[in-house]
Amino acid sequence: AQTIAEKMTQTLIIINKSTVPVGTGDWTREIISSKQPQPIDFSVVSCPEFLREGSAIADFLQPDRTVLGSIDRAAAEAVAELYTPVNAPVVITDLRTAEMIKYASNAFLATRISFINEISIICERLDADVTEVARGMGFDKRIGPHFLEAGIGFGGSCFPKDVKALANMAQTHGMHPQLLNAVMEINAFQRRQITLKAREMLGGAVNGRTLAILGLAFKQNTDDTRESPSLTVARSLLNQGAVVKAYDPVAMENASRDLPGMQLCQSPYEAAEGADALLVLTPWNEFKHLDMRRIHTSMARAILIDGRNMYNPAELRKLGFAYRGVGRGYNGEG
């Protein structure tokens, strides 16, 4: 902001696309006003992006909405004209509200994930199947089907950071963000659940055991390993004395920097060979089409922990796998 103030020579509209703490637009405006060598008119517009990794181009070309915030409505309307070709609803509001919309949106989506993950834990205890629970819920138009896939929790560069930041902003202003704190706690516990299942299925300990992990990116269709649940699980297993072999289609270079103790493999089959348990933690499409008979034959013990509920439990058990999913609690086997 100070550099803009020092360099600007004509009237400007300054657009901020980043996710920033609520109030950043006002601070930017104050800094520029105080640092200008001579007064020049300008406006600050918040235009937060809503782009998902792996589908950013499609999200940009076909957005659900465009959010614009400014104390200068004419400036916001001028920016809105830039988005006319995408033909999406435009929300024009003030700076702080626009900044808050981004945080609230991400926090709500993270809350849905943690909600269905908590339901999955209950399903395991009550012998219900969370995939069918989510399906039944999703037909309700008030709820919808999105972000109701139980798994090992959310990761990446947005949801964890934004939920934590929003909770911190609330605490800074004297509030107790109980729901946001619960969202983060459930997300952390869901990762531990995978390690606990591995220990249980291996007789109470993983020390000296070989565990294979399929998927290291925090989600499919990206090489991003920031806040990856898979790496949290791998780190926990390594700390408990396990040998961890791993494969990911595109994220192994990043994962090797984050967690050099893993043995990286060139294929899912190489990772599974000789393993005491196989953990599927990122829902890459190629993992849906593996030769599971070949996997079963190559493993030292045919234990499969399906962290994304990608497989049909009955089919895998028929092949001879000891199978555990997330929240698929029939017969006491989640």
Rank of each mutant, 00 (worst) to 15 (best):
G174R: 04
Q263K: 11
F60H: 14
L316H: 06
T222E: 06
L61Q: 09
D72V: 12
A78H: 09
G325V: 04
S228G: 11
E149W: 03
E30P: 00
L278I: 07
T282P: 09
I15P: 08
L196V: 12
A212C: 13
M252W: 05
V45S: 03
M252E: 12
D64G: 15
I213E: 06
E99F: 10
N207K: 12
P39W: 11
K102Y: 01
T66Y: 05
E200F: 07
L109T: 11
A255Y: 09
Q38F: 15
D59G: 05
F159T: 03
G261Q: 12
P313A: 12
R199P: 02
F108G: 01
D224I: 02
T195P: 04
E270F: 02
R135P: 02
D258H: 09
E118F: 01
A242W: 01
Y83C: 10
A314G: 07
I92H: 05
N168E: 14
F218Q: 03
F147W: 04
M169P: 04
S236R: 10
T3S: 08
R65S: 12
I143R: 03
L259Y: 08
R294T: 05
A255R: 06
A255D: 09
L278V: 06
L51G: 11
A74R: 15
G329F: 00
L12W: 06
T24S: 13
L51F: 11
I119N: 05
G241E: 01
G327E: 05
V91M: 10
Q266C: 05
V130G: 01
S236K: 09
D306W: 01
Q10H: 13
A170L: 09
S18H: 07
R324N: 10
R52Q: 15
E132R: 06
I121Y: 05
R135A: 14
G54I: 03
P160G: 08
P145G: 02
L202I: 08
S18N: 13
L214S: 04
L148T: 03
I13V: 15
S298H: 05
D162N: 07
F108A: 05
T282C: 13
E270V: 10
Y103C: 07
N106W: 02
F139L: 11
L51I: 14
P39H: 14
Q2G: 08
V86H: 04
E99V: 06
A188Q: 14
E49T: 08
P229L: 14
D72L: 09
K197R: 13
I15L: 14
A75L: 03
C265P: 03
T66S: 07
L278P: 00
N312M: 09
A80P: 05
L82E: 14
G151D: 01
I31L: 14
V20Q: 02
E118N: 05
G241T: 03
R112V: 04
P260T: 11
A98N: 02
F189Y: 14
N181L: 09
A150Q: 04
S55D: 14
M252C: 12
A275V: 09
M100D: 01
L319E: 04
M299N: 01
F218M: 06
G156A: 12
R317Q: 15
I71Y: 15
C265N: 11
V206D: 03
G332K: 12
R52M: 13
R125E: 13
V22I: 15
G327M: 04
I40Y: 03
E118L: 02
F154R: 00
S120N: 10
